[in-house]
Amino acid sequence: MRILLVEDDRHLSASLAEALEAMRYTVDVATDGETAWQHMRLMPYDLMLMDVTLPCLDGLALCQRMRSHSIHAPVLMLTARDTRQDKIAGLDAGADAYMVKPFDLAELTAQIRALLRRGQTSATTTLTWGALRLNPNTYEVTYGDTPLRLTPKEFAILNLLMRHGRRVLSRYFMLESIWPMDDPPGEETVKAHLKSLRKKLHKAGAPRNFVETVHGLGYRLMEV
């Protein structure tokens, strides 16, 4: 899951980003509304976490712009303003939820999980590909009856591959989808994570070519 965090308090944004990344979210950070808008035009996000009071373009105007351009990702607004009218203004601008600073991190992450679950059905909660099963909510992965212990990035790559099935994904696409925009690694990093992922899958009983290399193009899951 990819989150855009829009917060001009650099200390708060750094601590929030660190906490969210520890929970296996991919987090991009913007410190003003216009930069956030440019991010939204380049990258699809699963959730926007934004302050109301922002430089260049405030959170209310940014949320209104999003909705007017048919960007429907859920928005959780953060603000120091605690009046009833402020909350109404935020929700009317298109926000899905509203939290007042200072907030409890556990409550914030519970709100994030609740917003990300919206629109998901029980039928799509667990992803399957042959004998492979992956639950994106519990981070559990099994091949047959064997559980796999994956690193956060291995999990994210496998999740991405399973969501796209036989579609070929380039290393660049994986970098774009999984790593933060402000500090992406090189494509060799993707190769290293894929090598480790393949070893773990094979050790659990999957064929060696369970993740296929399509030379010159990228990777996909084998046909089952």
Rank of each mutant, 00 (worst) to 15 (best):
R2C: 05
D8Q: 06
D9K: 14
H11C: 07
E18V: 04
A22C: 11
T26I: 02
G33H: 11
L42S: 14
D46C: 09
D46L: 06
M48D: 02
L49K: 14
M50S: 15
V52L: 14
P55Q: 03
P55T: 05
C56W: 07
C56F: 04
G59C: 03
A61L: 04
L62M: 15
C63E: 01
S70L: 11
I71G: 03
A73D: 06
A73K: 09
L76Y: 10
L78Y: 02
T79L: 05
R81W: 07
D82I: 07
T83K: 12
A89Y: 01
D92S: 14
A93Q: 07
D96Y: 07
Y98T: 11
M99H: 08
P102S: 09
F103D: 05
E107S: 13
A110P: 02
A110M: 10
Q111I: 05
L115I: 08
L115D: 08
L116K: 12
L116E: 13
R117G: 08
G119I: 09
S122F: 10
T126G: 04
T126Y: 05
L132C: 04
R133T: 12
L134A: 01
N135M: 09
E140Q: 15
T142P: 04
Y143C: 04
P147M: 01
L148W: 07
L150A: 05
P152C: 03
E154H: 11
I157W: 08
L158T: 03
L161N: 02
M162R: 01
H164K: 14
R166Y: 00
R167D: 06
M174D: 02
E176D: 13
I178S: 04
D183H: 13
D183V: 09
P184D: 02
P185K: 05
E188I: 10
E188N: 08
E188P: 00
V190Q: 01
K191L: 12
K195S: 15
K195P: 01
K199R: 14
P207I: 00
N209I: 00
F210L: 00
E212A: 00
E212K: 01
T213D: 09
T213Q: 06
V214R: 07
V214H: 05
H215W: 09
H215N: 13
G216C: 06
